[in-house]
């Protein structure tokens, strides 16, 4: 059995009277690419935000990398945050810093490496995500959408995290860039041994690069598992989401 990285049990979330999650369960194993799927408003982004400590939930337990998020102390949370990287939907690069400084900031704050080595590492991360070297001196406002995603990925990978969260990594990219991004994510998973959790809508990504996923709908997880397994399930939302029978993914 593989190592469990994230385990959510009976998560209940509500905003005022609106219930978002009604006893949601899901499990992410080591070294897999796991996706949270669902229509708009199904609470997948909320679940991701709960995993990265940006939002609290009413009841249930959520374990990430062995820490229980309901009982975690501020110091443990700080440790945990250094072990993951997060790529936000719009990149969320610090607009007052250049791309290189966005990446270098993490090394300056959290390590005591020499400036020369930090410089080398920044160059390396920029190469790794496929950005040209001159991009490190550009500011976020001077980058295209695809470059922002890559720069944000380089920043997320800065501290060599074991766990990577991606919020709609391919939204706003052209189809070719999306496929390149998928390939890059897979390569990183294979070579760096990453575990990746993402929220996505991209059917091609789901088809090509995802190992397992959870489909959210009706405030619950309707299905969890591999694509081939989930497609066997007879549920109107599964049919709707994968556009079974029409021009969508064929089972």
């Amino acid at each position: 059995m593989k190592h469990v990285i994230i385990e959510a049990r009976d998560i209940v979330t509500s905003f005022g009277d609106t219930i978002i999650h009604d006893h949601v369960n899901c499990t992410v194993y080591e070294n897999e690419i796991y996706a949270l799927l669902g229509g708009s408003g199904s609470g997948k982004s909320t679940l991701l935000r709960e995993m990265i400590l940006l939002q609290s939930f009413q009841s249930g337990t959520l374990n990430v990398l062995g820490y229980n998020l309901t009982t975690i102390t501020p110091l443990q949370a700080q440790d945990l945050r250094r072990q993951w990287g997060v790529l936000f939907q719009s990149g969320a690069l610090y607009s007052s810093l250049s791309v290189g400084e966005n990446i270098a900031m993490l090394y300056r704050e959290y390590t005591d490496l020499s400036p020369k080595l930090i410089d080398e590492l920044v160059a390396l991360k920029i190469d790794l995500v496929g950005l040209p070297q001159h991009a490190r001196y550009l500011f976020p406002s001077e980058l295209s959408g695809g470059m922002i995603k890559r720069a944000a990925l380089a920043r997320a990978l800065a501290l060599d995290p074991k766990l990577l969260f991606l919020d709609e990594p391919t939204s706003g990219l052209d189809p070719l860039s999306s496929r390149q991004f998928d390939a890059l994510i897979q390569q990183l998973r294979d070579l760096l041994g990453l575990t990746i959790v993402m929220v996505t809508h991209d059917l091609d990504t789901i088809h090509n690069s995802i190992d397992r996923f959870a489909l959210l709908g009706d405030k619950k997880v309707i299905a969890e598992g591999r694509l081939s397994e989930v497609l066997q399930i007879d549920h109107p939302l599964v049919d709707y989401f994968f556009q079974k029978g029409s021009y969508g993914i064929k089972g």
């Binding site: 390590t111 490496l113 020369k116 080595l117 080398e120 590492l121 390396l124 991360k125 790794l128 060599d160 760096l192």
Partner: peptide, 11 residues
């Protein structure tokens, strides 16, 4: 070994 170790060697 991680990317920082490799970068150090390479440097």
């Amino acid at each position: 070994l991680d990317s920082a170790g490799i970068a150090l060697w390479h440097l």
